[in-house]
Amino acid sequence: MTERDSRRTQLIEAAARLVSRGGVAALSARNVAAEAGMSTKPVYSAFGSMEALLRAVVTEGFDRLEQRIVIGPSADPLADIATLTAGYLEFARTEPALYAVMFGISSFGQAPAIPRAELVPDRQRTFDRITDNFQRAIDQGRIQSTRASTLAYRWWVIVHGFATLESAEFIGRERGGERVLEPLLVSLFVGEGDDAERARESVAAGVASSALR
Rank of each mutant, 00 (worst) to 15 (best):
M1I: 06
T2L: 14
T2D: 15
T2G: 08
E3L: 11
E3W: 15
D5Y: 15
Q10G: 13
A14W: 06
A15D: 12
A15M: 08
A16L: 00
A16C: 13
R21H: 09
G22N: 11
V24T: 08
A26W: 13
L27W: 06
A29V: 06
R30T: 13
N31I: 06
A33S: 06
A36N: 13
S39R: 10
T40G: 03
T40L: 02
K41A: 11
K41C: 10
K41V: 15
F47R: 03
M50A: 13
E51M: 01
R55S: 05
A56W: 13
V58H: 00
V58C: 05
T59N: 07
E60A: 12
E60N: 12
G61Q: 02
D63H: 05
L65R: 01
I69F: 04
I69Q: 00
I71L: 14
P73Y: 05
S74G: 01
D76M: 09
P77R: 00
L78A: 03
A79E: 05
A79Y: 03
D80G: 05
L84Y: 04
Y88I: 06
F91E: 03
F91H: 01
A92M: 09
R93S: 02
T94M: 02
L98D: 01
A100Y: 02
M102L: 12
F103G: 03
F103M: 02
S106V: 07
G109S: 07
G109N: 08
A111K: 04
A113Y: 08
I114N: 10
P115L: 01
A117W: 06
R123T: 11
R123N: 05
R123F: 15
Q124A: 06
F127V: 03
F127Y: 14
R129A: 14
D132W: 05
D132R: 00
N133Q: 12
N133I: 03
Q135N: 04
R136Q: 10
R136L: 02
D139V: 04
Q140D: 12
R142S: 09
Q144V: 11
Q144D: 10
S145E: 07
A148M: 03
S149I: 00
L151S: 07
Y153T: 02
R154L: 14
R154V: 13
V157A: 10
V157R: 07
V157N: 04
H160N: 12
T164R: 07
T164V: 11
E169M: 01
I171W: 08
I171Q: 06
R173F: 08
R173I: 13
G176K: 00
R179A: 14
E182L: 10
P183A: 05
L184M: 15
L185C: 14
L185G: 00
V190P: 10
G191I: 09
E192Y: 12
D194M: 08
D194F: 14
R200I: 10
E201V: 09
A204Q: 12
A205E: 15
A205Q: 11
A208M: 15
S209I: 15
S210H: 05
L212F: 05
R213G: 15
